[in-house]
Amino acid sequence: MAVTAGQEGLVAMAVALTVLGTGFATAWAEKVIGAAAVGAIAEKPELFARVLTMLVIPETIVVFGIVIAFLLFGSI
């Protein structure tokens, strides 16, 4: 997809929106998991390792966002 002169701004905004959206989604998901995780650790400290990995699962969303952002960025 060729980007004509003058459209770079739109692409840059798309990049920003992608990172913003996926970042926000990740933060939201981790907020929910994190709250539950702290509760679980308070009850059973040995769950720490499992809970920690569960906590970072939503980070895949923002990783996808970053990949797409770079692909878009490449077309400027």
Partner: peptide, 12 residues
Amino acid sequence: VANLVSYARLAG
């Protein structure tokens, strides 16, 4: 496919 892309976190 999602798993493959998930490793992009190394670069990220």
